[in-house]
């Protein structure tokens, strides 16, 4: 079961197979908990978010669409949305945004036989796209995308006008999108 493809493992997980459930959790728990911890800061709340992410995945497995991305990314999107909800509800104190100024953009690829190759290529393109961004746009984008910070919060953190924060986020994400699309086409 540990070597099953991501899609197969997700399908078995959704059907309540205990072995598949354990394998699915082991495959993604480090990433899911890591993202939750990055966003909400508090370890207890991060575990709540991570647990709920797996429950949501189990309940809504039929909503997964492989054309939109990998199971790995799908799990992280669920986690991000739950973490943002949790932060809004509980006014959690996220991690110090300074953490992301030193973020290791060479983060290791996901575990799992097919996820590794798939996310490695995506990671490579993403790293290159982020490297091309001006530092202030990269910082704003990572604060929004990985910390779940709103434009208003980024404006406060960076001591910049709200409009400038919005522009940095928007321009940064548009450039990343264009860069990744171009690199994907070139390959």
């Amino acid at each position: 079961m540990a070597t099953a493809s991501d899609d197969t493992l997700l399908a078995s997980f959704a059907l309540g197979d205990p072995d598949a459930a354990a394998a699915f959790i082991r495959r993604y728990q480090g990433r899911v908990y890591g993202l939750a911890r990055s966003m909400v800061g508090d370890p207890g709340l991060a575990e709540d978010v991570a647990q709920e992410a797996f429950i949501r995945a189990w309940r809504n497995a039929q909503a997964y669409d492989s054309r939109r991305g990998s199971v790995h990314t799908w799990m992280l999107v669920i986690t991000r949305n739950l973490a943002i909800d949790a932060m809004r509800l509980r006014r959690a104190q996220p991690v110090d945004p300074e953490v992301f100024s030193t973020l290791d953009l060479r983060a290791s690829p996901a575990r799992g036989p097919e996820a590794s190759a798939e996310t490695s290529a995506e990671m490579r393109d993403l790293r290159a796209a982020l490297d091309d961004l001006p530092a202030e746009q990269r910082q704003a984008l990572l604060l929004a995308g990985l910390c779940g910070r709103t434009a208003a919060e980024i404006s406060e953190i960076e001591s910049i006008p709200l409009g400038t924060a919005k522009t940095r986020i928007r321009t940064g994400l548009q450039k990343v999108r264009s860069s990744m699309a171009r690199r994907s086409t070139d390959q």
């Binding site: 459930a21 990433r31 575990e47 939109r68 992280l76 990343v176």
Partner: peptide, 24 residues
């Protein structure tokens, strides 16, 4: 799609002991 890709950069972290069994 680009925003979702950013999530791949999140650092991996070991969840607290017993996490897997609590989810199960």
């Amino acid at each position: 799609r680009a925003a979702d890709s950013l999530l791949l950069l999140a650092p991996e972290a070991e969840p607290p002991p017993g996490f897997e069994s609590r989810v199960l």
